[in-house]
Amino acid sequence: MTDQALDTPRREPAILRALKSIALMRESVVGMIGFALVLFWVLVAIFADFLAPYLPNAQDVTMIYAAPGSVASNGGTYLLGADDLGRDILSRIIHGARRVLTYAPLATFCAYLVGVPMGLAAGYRRGWIDDVLSFIANIILSFPVLVLYVIVISTFGASAVNIVIAVTFASAPGIFRIVRGLTLDLRTREYVFAAETRGESPWYIMLVEILPNARGPLIVDVCLRVGYVIITIGVLGFLGLGLPPPDPDWGGMINETRSMAMIFPWMAVFPCIAISSLVLGFNLLADGLREVSLRD
């Protein structure tokens, strides 16, 4: 980062290094299961157009509440059944994956964009900056999360942008706290002291000397947080405050069919399995990464 000339000869491309760290995960069975689950859904999301047998919003009145495995009049099979409007549940789940895997990482990324610099500044500079930022973070965190989401989104309206903003707003303080804690620890290292004695600027110290050494715990946190944001988006959809219909959204699918769920349970059960498996993937991946990082 500081001097390309000396760093480049040995430095592998980022992708290669990422692959290597995944290869390290081989030692953690749990981590590999998590990785496989996440990879599965990512591939599903990317190739949704090829994988889904029907268009996600295509309705077939003859197939309303069709049970899993039903065969339509035109010969197509509704593998996971159909919903109250006769839409193929499998196709909706496949397209829903694309939607959730777009917004959840995006919202997490935005939250990091806000939380990381603030955490670095508070942890490194301390003093009044720390006092003010920590107080703000504590206020936001003192709200029960979902109460916050429900009030904010019901007031400003349920749209993709508002959801991303709300998630950023509610997650950034948590990221702030983690980064601040790591920074408070790392700032006492002698290499930081060495950088100070040679008159480096505070932002150089925070970004070049401190942040790269905090990446281990932060990568684990990213996985956990993406998983949690997926739950959040799902819950909002379930409460009717999620991404706007008619495009499929796993939480929304359950909300739409909730009243009939006890009579035709497949409408709700399969989206539930989808979201749970994706979140489980991220959580197991985080656990595996933590296990591997503790090892060396």
């Binding site: 980062m1 500081t2 001097d3 000396l6 760093d7 002698e190 290499y191 040679r198 790269p212 050494n213």
Partner: peptide
């Protein structure tokens, strides 16, 4: 200054050469 603790006198994220080069430029 030369510091006390060999285990955190150097930044583990950067190569030895890069760290020395930074000081030379600085």
């Amino acid at each position: 200054m030369v510091f006390q603790n060999p285990f955190d006198t150097l930044n583990p994220s950067h190569s030895v050469g890069a760290q020395l080069a930074r000081v030379i430029r600085k």
